[in-house]
Every structure is written in C-alpha cells, then in structure tokens.
C-alpha cells in the first residue's frame, strides 16, 4: 500500500479520468484527496490473506436469457438527446483523427 502522505499527482489522475479541472481547484483537490486517501489507508492494518474478495452482495453469475428479437428503440428516440447531429441521422462529433477537416 502507498506510504502515508504520498503525494497524489492530480493532473495525472485527471488525465486518466478525462477531466479538465480548473487550475484553481487543483491544490484544494490534492489536499482533500490526500486526506481521504490517508483515511482509507487504515485498511492496511487488516490481515486479509486468504480472504475472498466480495464484488457483489448477491452471488449471481452468468445470468443469461434467450436472445429474442423485440421492438428496438426507434432511432429518433435514441438520437433525441444527442448534443449535435448530422442530417438528423448521425451523432456529430469533433474531429477524431488529425488531418483535413470534413466539410
């Protein structure tokens, strides 16, 4: 487990989480995260060797159902919440690959 008082690289974590944070938020967030992580470090006191992890409170696995075709959501309904569309049919996004822009 990380040592107590380890510095958290907030910019690095923000980049992993795809978050653009206001500059003035970073020092406060760093202090808060280090305080909270410092608190949760207490779990290091416990001996957990041989203990199985619990991922879910209900141990139900591989719940399968028959693949039966049914009424799908209409396209318009699924696109209705999109921030931007092309001709009402495609989700418009900013350019993904470098190069010339699309018309």
């Amino acid at each position: 487990m990380a040592e107590q008082g380890n510095k958290i690289d907030v910019a690095q974590v923000a980049s992993l989480a795809r978050l653009s944070l206001p500059q003035d938020m970073i020092p406060r967030l760093q202090a808060e995260m280090e305080q909270i992580v410092g608190y949760v470090e207490m779990l290091a006191e416990l001996d957990v060797s041989g203990i199985e992890p619990t991922a879910h409170a209900v141990a139900r696995t591989n719940v399968l159902r028959d693949d039966e075709p049914s009424d799908p959501f209409p396209r318009e309904a699924m696109l209705a919440n999109a921030p931007d569309l092309i001709e009402g049919e495609l989700v418009k996004v900013p350019q993904v690959l470098p190069g010339e822009g699309i018309a």
């Binding site: 779990l43 290091a44 416990l46 957990v48 199985e52 992890p53 619990t54």
Partner: peptide, 10 residues
C-alpha cells in the same frame, strides 16, 4: 483490499 474487507464486514 477493500473488496476483501467487504467480505469481513459481511
């Protein structure tokens, strides 16, 4: 580790 502690709590 937290998932294992969850087992202990249960």
């Amino acid at each position: 580790r937290a998932q294992k502690v969850r087992t202990l709590l249960r």
